[in-house]
Design a protein around this nucleic acid. Structure first.
Lengths: 145, 145
DNA sequence: TTACTTGCAAAGGCTTTGCATCGCC
DNA sequence: GGCGATGCAAAGCCTTTGCAAGTAA
């Protein structure tokens, strides 16, 4: 079930988004969604846990994983991999990709990847129906050069 | 017999490749490289192990991981992730990407992704120096539709 | 011989699961 | 109250590592 994020862009996402997704509103979930909102780079489970701790929430690691599972299922967040042996997550919504600096780890967004043209071509030539794709660039960022 | 001659030729290639890379030529390495050569889809550690067993090699799992590490280091293979919670590997060389069927798991190659133009643009606009990139498409293949 | 390679065993990191309890609606 | 959410503990995968023994060059 997919929920529009744009609609909440200028108000408090968390509670409304949870309700709209037919999920119970708990502290951990609110704070976690708020964290996704404010973070600029895709976050991992450890960082979510750390943020919850900062808000005096002793949420269990298993709960975080289950939360992520639920959010993924509802289309609230998307999963990414940067070759670290773990997943990262960010709020779903805009079709964008990342420049990952292999030196300092900073992540910059790039948008408008224009890959829809590709997907059409793939459908025509290969008869393969693209559901989603991953596109990330790895290298050295401006300040690390 | 023709088949075994072909295979012998393959093994020679494996040995040559290893020597070029200044690696000692061992049975496990030869057979593994042969496996990478003959496989059409990126393989995981389990599949490499299984192939080694078929060739009566009781190679340890740790050895396979170390082999992979060495091959990656020498640029013989490249590492891929398809969101499975594990890595896959394939012979390095051509710049191509994959159509991964989420139903049957089949992997098809697509080439000429024309992303070099992108990398130039990224360098100009963001001053980010791209070293490598990942691009995979996930969806439903022709025969699964 | 010498340095690289391997086997074995253990551990490490990330993620999932079973089950009883808790708490939002 | 009911059903979904959570905590706790354990286990499941994938991968890495230390060390001693083996082996290609």
């Amino acid at each position: 079930m997919q929920v529009s994020r744009v609609r909440f862009a200028f108000m408090q996402l968390s509670a409304q988004l949870l309700q709209q997704s037919q999920l119970k509103v708990t502290n951990a979930r609110k704070v976690a969604i708020h964290f996704f909102e404010k973070e600029e780079r895709p976050v991992d489970v450890e960082e979510i846990l750390f943020h919850l701790r900062k808000h005096k929430l002793a949420t269990d690691r298993a709960t975080v994983y289950r939360m992520i599972d639920t959010f993924l299922d509802r289309g609230i967040i998307t999963r990414l991999e940067f070759g670290e042996g773990k997943y990262r997550y960010e709020l779903a919504g805009s079709d964008h990709h990342h420049l990952v600096c292999e030196n300092c780890g900073r992540v910059e967004d790039i948008s408008d990847c224009g890959i829809e043209a590709w997907e059409k071509k793939i459908k025509q030539k290969k008869h393969f129906l693209v559901k989603h794709h991953s596109l990330e660039f790895f290298g050295i960022c401006k300040s690390c050069q």
